[in-house]
């Protein structure tokens, strides 16, 4: 079965992990809130696993989903 993702961002080699000195790649991550989970693909460091949540995503879709869940 195909992997379901609610959101995908490909860093396209523009982001570098300062700790591991390597490029972030599109990787599997999951948002968790109030006992709900949403699989996504975000820029992830292949070594240390640092997951980057861009500002537009945090203040856009993430905020909207947070507000929707808060009123459930």
């Amino acid at each position: 079965m195909a992997d379901k993702n609610y959101y995908t961002i490909d860093p396209e080699g523009k982001l570098t992990c300062l700790k591991c000195r390597c490029k972030l790649q599109k990787g599997k991550a999951k948002f968790l809130y109030l006992d709900n989970g949403f699989p996504v693909e975000l820029p992830v460091c292949p070594q240390c696993g640092f997951v980057y949540v861009p500002e537009e995503l945090a203040l856009g879709k993430v905020l909207a989903v947070e507000k929707a869940l808060e009123d459930k």
């Binding site: 999951k30 997951v51 949540v53 500002e55 945090a58 203040l59 989903v65």
Partner: peptide, 27 residues
């Protein structure tokens, strides 16, 4: 989240934002 530049004595904050959702790695 903080976007910053490094300065001689520390950091200069350019922007900051936040979210309540927790983000974790998954396999």
């Amino acid at each position: 989240w903080v976007k910053y530049r490094e300065t001689d004595a520390g950091y200069q904050v350019i922007s900051a934002y936040s979210h309540r959702m927790k983000v974790v790695n998954r396999q």
